[in-house]
Design a protein around this nucleic acid. Structure first.
Lengths: 246, 246
DNA sequence: TGCCTTGTTTAACCTATGTGAATTGCACGG
DNA sequence: CCGTGCAATTCACATAGGTTAAACAAGGCA
């Protein structure tokens, strides 16, 4: 049983980790952030965290599991626009005081922490750096959306799939969710991956098999392994710049 | 010569118009915003406004003309990720105090106003609603990116092109740039439209001709006319919700 | 034990869109 | 008036990826 992920963390630990990665925070700010996250609420797979932008008085932070934002097309097909991993904010509608136009749904069993908006306002007033950190979260998410856009506009199926796997590897690694052997949980179905990448399920399957044959990726039982991350990155020219503060 | 667009405006007028559309601003805030925009700087077509996120101490607002944000793919092709029309902020990097990862280039002769960052900070401190208004600008831009993502992921060529034309019609109309007869300047080349929509130039051309034959759109000499906006909207199920504050 | 359900895989066939290359129409500069 | 060059257009052909349907595997449950 090598690769136990990590000991249990306090709810706020994950968000704290994310924010300090993006911004130097004072000791006081860090404590405030850590304490602001409420006891996690648990969601089953395919349960809605945010329904069509119905926003209330709290910011939701994914603490564990996997989720996505999506939009429906008129023909009933679904386009996934972002994947949400632990540490991510589920919905940025609170920033502009307007409900989000999208819904957020879990893709696996997940837990979500709440940060009360009034409380957050107080923290931000005392520690303005926290606001910058949050805005960086938003900027990175926007960057990820842009990169997905680039994938759909200009990359072929093989590059789309490998680029997304590289991104997941990178993001989950930052969250401490990649094991020693380079494997990580990716609780997606191939159909869902297709809904994000604009590919049919069948073609996602074909493409994943090519990656297997190339010895660059395996994906079984919701676990992805990249035996040769460097080879994978160079295959699709993955550059994680868009996922980092600078 | 019907349809003269509108009399000359003071530089800050356009931005003022945009922000008040998104947010109720007090008289003081409106004056502050109006006065904060510097004398416009003029750019030729295809000149860079922001180069690879080299950010300085001012926010740039497009006052007239047309621009886009883009990213290059490793194979040298270019993916346009956003079109920027008068009233839009060119780059939101200043929000998170990190350089943008993209470049902004004009697509026609354009003018750009600058808002000094320190000055803006002062305004925001006195009138926090201005910050919310700016964050709404950012949210709407994110919404537009998402919608383009949806186009690339799930719409066919005809719907992509018509949806984009509907969006342009809507956005330019808000900026007061659509003439009585429903026509508006779209200083793009078909190749550039293809770079945004993930289509080859040839196929953009084919598609535009279909729209012509359907009597839904004409596009000549950089001028687009939608004789039947409603038909156009229903063709591609255009819903401008994602472009508005609510 | 055996039937559902959900997800992956395979196969045959089809089409929307890309590619390459030539043609046309203009606007511009000399 | 003639070249030059960019943008729009056309044509012939190629292909990546979609579609439909069926088979297969594994887990849950009666």
């Amino acid at each position: 049983m090598r690769g136990a992920l990590r000991p249990t963390l306090s709810p706020g630990e994950i968000w704290h980790r994310r924010l300090t990665d993006l911004m130097d925070l004072s000791e006081g700010a860090r404590a405030a952030v850590r304490d602001a996250v409420s006891a996690p609420r648990s969601y089953q797979s395919r349960e809605h965290i945010v329904r069509d932008g119905l926003e209330d008085t709290a910011v939701r932070v994914l603490l564990s599991g996997f989720a996505c934002r999506y939009k429906y097309l008129p023909d009933g097909s679904r386009q996934i626009t972002t994947f949400i991993v632990p540490g991510d904010i589920c919905d940025f509608g609170f920033l502009s005081d307007s409900p989000a136009s999208q819904s957020v749904v879990t893709l696996s069993h997940s837990t979500v922490g709440m940060v009360d908006l009034d409380r957050l306002a107080g923290i931000v007033e005392q520690y303005p750096e926290v606001m910058t950190a949050i805005l960086r979260c938003a900027a990175i998410e926007h960057g990820a959306t842009n990169e997905l856009l680039v994938s759909l506009g200009g990359r072929n199926a093989l590059h789309r799939v490998s680029h997304l796997l590289c991104e997941m590897h990178f993001r989950l690694n930052k969250a401490g969710l990649v094991r020693e052997d380079g494997s990580f949980d990716l609780p997606l179905t191939q159909a869902e991956l297709g809904e994000a990448l604009g590919l049919s399920t069948v073609h996602v399957n074909r493409t994943v098999q090519v990656l297997r044959r190339l010895g660059l990726a395996t994906w079984r039982d919701k676990v992805v392994t990249l035996p040769d991350p460097e080879g994978m990155r160079s295959l699709c020219s993955f550059d994680p710049g868009y996922l980092q503060a600078r």
